[in-house]
Design a protein around this nucleic acid. Structure first.
Lengths: 344, 344
DNA sequence: GTGAAAGCGCTAACAG
DNA sequence: CTGTTAGCGCTTTCAC
């Protein structure tokens, strides 16, 4: 095939062909000042004929703005982050921004490396779901004037704008709901990584138990990774430890689904033998058997808010005070939770 | 807070501080020619002190290469594309490339708009899962010298490199498997969009039926969209049409799961009353109840091959013949398929 | 071994 | 209304 790259056609070629200055060409392209119909016509024709296409890079160098933003997520293959990314991408697309996708793989080191790359590529801003609670590198970039918003996870001391949810409250409510159903032995499938929202969630769990005078049994606390398999094996471990719980709260829906599978494999019925509640409300939750009771993660609102915050800060050139927005959560009762056997 | 943007520190500042020429600074940064230890030391120190960071954009303009590639997927919130994206991102990261993510939303028009943006941003190449069979705009870019690879869907007449799977064969095998289990009334949950792999798959289905002397009953053919809900409602429609099938083949796992849900809601057992087979093998398949029999989509191999092809073409400057690689599929039998009631 | 200087393709003063 | 021109920050000949 041997496809030779033809010489790139530049604004100069267009100008030459239309017998005008390159300034005028630039101005009709960007609609940045009035140009007579005559010239405009010739220029448009020349663009057409030469099949000219703007080189944004050159423009970006000049304008010091790339109309590109970076998004750092722990793992795009987690459905919740996938959906969030999609919503963010949609918002940005509407504003003619383009998205650089970065998977940190839950690795703070990789996150940092990506942050460097993004800066080097001169993105106009970045949205990051931080992999760990250590956000010194994030704050450093903010200090250098890079617009950033931290998403999803309540890291303390952030100097970037932030939008997240009230993790503690959400788990508190979920726990309280289970207690209301008569459950007293409630398992907690925690996250094994040390993510920023791990502590607040566990706090919420403990707080709810305390309010209802339930002692926390440490054997009911196990940790799980990020896959279905991790959820299943964690649940397996939990079930081996002494008297089994009548309900469990999982760190997210993926873990909850793995857990349901593990129960099922041991002949335990959900929710008759064990109630399970998830976290996130992935679309799938309404289609599992049984349908999963869960906490709804406000992804649409989160994406919109994050983009609004970021774009505003990009527009304003980092003026204005830091914003922190906490989004409300919704508890969605489906079929995976029920009264405890003997309870009212 | 009012964060003033400090003046950007450039290569000039570093050169000044180290009392050398900017050329030398550039050379130590890029390790592109020998520099004495003395100067190198001073330069490195100056970089450190000024917290200088390379501006890739300027370099890219000069070098005509951005070390960025575009990825266009129909919908990143589809788990299979999410995983594919992740694998691709990983491959590129290893080579220090950066990824611009684009959701076409299954819309050819939006795909085209994104392609324009990518070109304008001077990406070094693009990987695209085409939204439709019309790929004139893709070929046009290839003709202009942009390295591209078309993924997943067997569009005809592509001038870009391509890597996809044998859709026809896969569905042929799946159908044959069901027939082997004694099924004769097999439903087909097709895709409603006119995607490039729609026809080959249906061909495979028909071919298998024909081989076994089974007449195709048109009432068993329904179309579904892309969500769980779409799958459920399509299955609902199918069940309303005359004698029900004893098995169904779904266009993808998402549709299959929606279909399972719909069966369940009507008191039908899977697989005792109806067998269902999906397509893709999302991780979730092993965790549903029952576990889903499906065709395994070779995502890892696909990601690797696509990246290898693209990077090679970028490296070689579009030399060499067009490549087309067809990846093998694997049929994964789990619990959602069984012998037809009365059959052996 | 090192430096000077010419651009990469565009935008935006500034000058008419 | 339109054109001239000075950069944006870097890479890379070419010369010493």
């Amino acid at each position: 095939m041997n496809m030779k790259k033809e010489k790139r056609v530049t604004i100069k070629d267009v100008a030459g062909r239309a017998s005008v200055s390159i300034a005028t060409v630039s101005h009709v392209i960007n609609e940045t000042r009035f140009v007579s119909d005559d010239l405009k016509g010739r220029i448009l024709a020349a663009i057409e004929e030469t099949d000219y296409q703007l080189d944004m890079m050159a423009g970006s160098l000049r304008k010091q703005s790339t109309r590109t933003v970076g998004l750092i997520v722990p793992d795009i293959s987690n459905p919740i982050y996938a959906e969030l990314s999609k919503l963010i991408e949609n918002n940005l697309f509407a504003d003619n921004f383009t998205l650089i996708l970065c998977n940190s793989e839950h690795d703070p080191f990789r996150e940092k490396k990506y942050l460097d790359m993004l800066r080097t590529k001169r993105v106009d801003g970045v949205i990051v779901i931080p992999a760990s609670a250590d956000i010194a590198h994030i704050n450093a970039l903010v200090a250098k004037g890079l617009p950033m918003v931290v998403l999803d996870r309540p890291v303390s001391g952030a100097r970037a704008d932030a939008v997240f949810i009230d993790h503690e409250r959400a788990v508190f409510d979920a726990t309280q709901y289970l207690v209301g159903l008569g459950h007293r032995r409630i398992g907690y499938l925690d996250k094994s990584h040390d993510v920023p929202h791990k502590a607040p969630r566990l706090d919420g769990f403990h707080a709810a138990l305390k309010v209802h005078g339930i002692d926390f049994d440490d054997t009911l606390h196990v940790e799980a990774g990020v896959t279905f398999e991790d959820g299943a094996s964690a649940m397996g471990r939990l079930l081996q430890r002494g008297p089994r719980p009548t309900a469990v709260i999982a760190f997210d829906d993926v873990v909850a689904m793995g857990a349901m599978r593990a129960c099922r494999d041991r002949g335990l019925d959900i929710p008759d033998d064990i109630s399970v509640v998830g976290f996130d409300d992935m679309p799938l939750c309404a289609y599992t058997v049984p349908r999963l009771t869960t906490v709804k993660y406000p992804r649409r609102k989160m994406a919109e808010t994050a983009c609004a915050l970021l774009l505003e800060r990009i527009r304003s050139g980092m003026d204005g005070n830091r914003q922190e927005i906490v989004l409300p959560l919704e508890f969605i009762v489906r079929e995976s939770t029920a009264f405890r056997g003997e309870a009212p």
